[in-house]
Simulated scan of single mutants.
Amino acid sequence: MTPLKTSYALDYETIFQYAPVGMCISVDRVIQSANEALASMFGYPLATLTDRSFLTLYPTLDEFLRTGDRIVPIMNARGRYSDERIMRRADGELFWCHVSGRALNPQQPLGAGVWTFEDLSEKRPVTAELTPREREIAALLVEGKTSKVIARETDLSPRTVEMHRAKLMRKFSASTSSELVHKLVGVSR
Rank of each mutant, 00 (worst) to 15 (best):
A9K: 12
V126R: 09
L10S: 13
K145S: 09
D119W: 05
T50K: 14
A77R: 04
T127I: 11
F117Q: 04
A128N: 03
G186I: 10
Q108K: 13
G186L: 05
V72H: 01
Q108T: 12
R133F: 09
E93G: 01
L120S: 02
P109R: 09
V187Y: 09
R159Y: 07
A166K: 13
C97S: 02
R189H: 14
A19T: 07
R70K: 03
I25P: 07
M87E: 05
I74R: 09
V21E: 06
M169Y: 10
M169F: 09
R159M: 11
R89S: 00
R89A: 04
G22C: 15
S178H: 11
P106I: 07
S33A: 04
R89P: 00
A47V: 01
V126A: 02
A34K: 00
S177N: 12
Y12V: 13
A90P: 05
C24M: 11
R70I: 08
F172D: 05
E162W: 06
G92F: 00
L156R: 15
T127R: 01
V99S: 05
R85D: 11
D155N: 15
G101S: 02
A151N: 09
Y58P: 04
P20S: 14
D62N: 10
L156V: 00
T56A: 08
V185R: 12
T116A: 06
A138Q: 06
V99I: 09
V30G: 01
V149F: 11
A19N: 07
D28Y: 10
L140Q: 10
R80E: 09
I71F: 03
A90Q: 09
R85K: 12
T2K: 15
P3S: 13
G111L: 08
S7W: 07
Y58K: 01
R189P: 08
D83W: 02
I150Y: 01
E13M: 15
T127P: 03
P20W: 08
A138T: 03
R170C: 13
T176H: 08
S188C: 11
Q17F: 14
S121P: 00
M1V: 12
L61R: 13
R152G: 07
S173T: 10
A128H: 03
A174R: 11
A112K: 14
K183V: 00
L57W: 05
S7D: 13
R66S: 08
S7N: 14
E93D: 01
L168I: 06
P158G: 10
S53K: 03
M1N: 13
S177R: 15
